[in-house]
């Protein structure tokens, strides 16, 4: 197991370097610069800026310098938020994204697994059809549509919840973003759970469990859930990584000061250090979550433990 983890960690490093290189290349390939605006800068000032940020050096020199910094976890200072280091900005915005993300994740897991299991146990019942129709809606309605609908209903009509703003956790301002964010994951987990459970409930070892005289509840909880949830587990790791690191659309929609919102701003501003910093951070989180899922998988399924 330890060897497996070490091997996976070693593969992680080149993966992150590739991701960052591609991002760096994309930023450089796009026309324009962080100092370009509607008004053309005087040539002397532009030369000064290019000199200060080393933009007049050959591209490989700039690339190696950037990579060297990133490998030391020094992402530099933001080009637009003056005097603030990228690390500071991430440290400030991550808690917001993570709070909304963890809450959305828990909501998606609890509701998704419960609804999916019941749908599987009561296959082809009204409950099954109703919940799976809802899940299908959850998957097909994009969150930039769902969010405004919720705002329209709960904020603009009923005046129950704030339409945007971040008051920290716990506060009413958390509810709408969390629901909007988790809907897709909830629906997906419900469908995965149902499919997984249906397959397991038809398997021979469940028939054995029933023939032992266990009640249906015992059969489901003790024998079926574990196998039935395996497909969910492999999905939840990457899902958690995405949720934790902020989602661009939902944070934008509800004006949350999270990682995703900063990422959009940084992209619009061509704020290279901030973009690279956030991309590096998200990739590391994503790869770590994948690794954790594989470890959890080995724990849940004794057959693949070696």
């Amino acid at each position: 197991m330890l060897r497996f983890i070490i091997r996976r960690l070693i593969i992680t490093i080149p993966t992150i370097l590739v991701v960052i290189t591609i991002t760096w290349g994309l930023i450089r390939l796009a026309p324009g610069n962080f100092y370009t605006s509607e008004k053309a800068l005087p040539a002397a000032i532009e030369r000064n800026i290019r000199d200060k940020y080393g933009l007049d050096r050959p591209w490989y020199e700039q690339y190696l310098k950037t990579m060297g910094q990133i490998l030391r976890f020094d992402f530099g200072t933001s080009l637009k938020y003056e005097g603030q280091s990228v690390n500071e900005i991430i440290a400030r915005s991550l808690p917001v994204s993570a709070t909304v993300g963890i809450l959305a994740y828990l909501l998606a897991l609890i509701v998704g697994i419960t609804v999916g299991s019941i749908a599987a146990i009561k296959q082809n019942s009204k409950w099954d059809y109703a919940s799976m129709t809802l899940a299908m809606l959850g998957i097909s309605i994009p969150n930039f549509v769902l969010g405004p609908i919720l705002v329209l209903f709960f904020s603009m009509t009923l005046y129950w919840l704030p339409p945007s703003r971040w008051d920290g956790f716990p506060s009413k301002s958390v509810i709408l973003p969390v629901i909007t964010l988790s809907a897709l994951y909830m629906a997906y987990i419900a469908r995965l759970t149902r499919a997984g459970m249906l397959e397991v409930l038809r398997s021979d070892y469940i028939r054995t469990a029933r023939s032992k005289g266990l009640s249906e509840t015992q059969v489901v909880i003790r024998h079926a859930l574990r196998g039935g949830l395996l497909p969910v587990v492999s999905y939840t790791g990457p899902a958690l990584a995405f949720l934790l690191t902020g989602t661009v659309v939902v944070e934008r929609l509800f004006v949350l000061p999270g990682l995703g919102n900063y990422f959009i701003q940084a992209s619009l501003n061509r704020d290279e250090p901030l973009i690279l910093g956030i991309v590096a951070f998200i990739s590391i989180t994503l790869l770590t979550m994948n690794l954790l899922v594989d470890i959890a998988y080995g724990y849940l399924d004794p057959r693949i433990r070696h």
Binding site: S203, D204, Y205, R207, T208, A209, R210, S211, K212, G213, L214, S215, R222, H223, R226, G227, L300, D301, P302, R303
Partner: peptide
């Protein structure tokens, strides 16, 4: 149903064809 469950396993036990799949692989 509850009475039948008291018979299953306790008084009438079963063995199935495929021992590869009839035991719970996770337990």
């Amino acid at each position: 149903e509850a009475e039948v469950r008291r018979i299953r396993g306790r008084r009438i036990a079963m063995i199935f064809q495929d021992p590869m799949t009839s035991l719970n692989p996770f337990m």
